[in-house]
């Protein structure tokens, strides 16, 4: 069973590595890179919100801080924006510390609302501190490397590390504790789980990898402004939809969701003209209605049922 899973992962990894050799058109390669960025963010969001159940509507804050860390290094210090790949995630984590301290006092919908507000606060602060951030004019950099294939492999490495780290966290004691907190915080406390500590153990890596995705975005797209990288709908909400589509609290759900979401979005945009958002919205609604656990989530449930049948234990979900 384990071997089969590993073989599948290796096979997919090989396909991912070989992909740019097959797909050569720059536009299609661009789509692939976007998929990698969204898959990374989705995987990071999934740790905090999917596994630990602390639904964040403010991940744009971490994404934006990561992107701006890279951008500001170049703007003010003239350093290569690639240093942002180190500074960005660290800054996102530093920002996450006070956010956690404030928002983890709240539960459920109140936590979600607090993160939503925090994300918006960051957008407004970056928009209005024009001396430091250039405000709405944004930051434009001249990328030293223009080869899409290069960005694809950097992005792939970023996603691989993110998925691996999240996988290791989830499949350890910490992961069990995070899911316990999601399922019932009082029960978790009664089992001796320090809930605030463990929520932070989910938040910090989540912020780290979201910040990393942001810094990579700055390098790749080469232009950012607060309304893009701190955007509520296009970043914070979209990352939620990506994960819901692929499967909340599953290893590959966010990646599957990102691929479907980006590719569907682009397909509709180029073929359906002005109706694309409407059609896209309807499809997202249908998927949420009929596959409430996302694509990877539904597959997991099927697998569990067959496993139990095989073991000859009593049925039911």
């Amino acid at each position: 069973m384990l071997n089969k899973k590993m073989l599948m992962t290796i096979a997919f990894a090989l396909i991912a590595v070989a992909l740019p050799l097959v797909i050569k058109a720059p536009y299609q390669q661009h789509i692939l890179i976007l998929v990698l960025i969204w898959a990374t963010m989705g995987t990071a969001w999934n740790l905090l919100s999917g596994y630990a159940g602390q639904v964040s509507f403010g991940h744009a804050a971490f994404f934006g801080v990561g992107a701006y860390s890279a951008g500001l290094l170049t703007l003010h210090l003239g350093l290569s924006p690639w240093w942002g790949l180190i500074l960005g995630p660290v800054m996102a984590m530093l920002v996450a510390l006070p956010i956690g301290a404030i928002a983890f006092r709240l539960r459920g919908p109140y936590f979600a609302l607090a993160t939503l507000a925090l994300g918006e606060i960051f957008r407004l602060v970056f928009l209005n501190t024009t001396n430091f951030t250039n405000g709405a004019k944004g930051i434009l950099i001249m990328p030293a490397i223009t080869s899409k294939v290069f960005y694809y492999y950097v992005g792939l490495g970023m996603l691989a590390v993110t998925v691996l780290v999240v996988y290791l966290i989830v499949h350890s004691k910490v992961g069990f504790y995070l899911v316990s907190i999601r399922e019932d915080q009082d029960a978790a406390t009664s089992l001796g789980i320090p809930t605030s500590l463990y929520k932070n153990l989910a938040l910090l890596p989540s912020a780290f990898f979201t910040g990393l995705a942001g810094a990579f975005y700055m390098n790749y797209v080469a232009f950012i402004e607060p309304n893009i990288v701190f955007n509520l709908t296009n970043i914070s909400i979209m990352v939620i939809l990506v994960v819901m589509l692929g499967g909340v609290a599953t290893t590959w759900g966010p990646t599957i969701g990102a691929a479907l979401y980006i590719i569907m979005g682009e397909l509709f945009r180029t073929t359906l003209g002005p109706a694309n958002v409407l059609v896209f919205g309807v499809i997202v609604c249908l998927i949420i209605m009929f596959l409430p656990n996302g694509i990877a989530g539904e597959l997991d449930i099927l697998k569990r049922i067959t496993q139990r049948k095989k073991a000859g234990l009593s049925g039911g979900v």
């Binding site: 504790y177 899911v179 316990s180 399922e183 089992l191």
Partner: peptide
């Protein structure tokens, strides 16, 4: 207060 979406085994493991 069961940990609803965890199996019985996982519930006990959490303890």
């Amino acid at each position: 207060k069961p940990l609803r979406r965890m199996t019985v085994q996982e519930n006990v493991m959490a303890g």
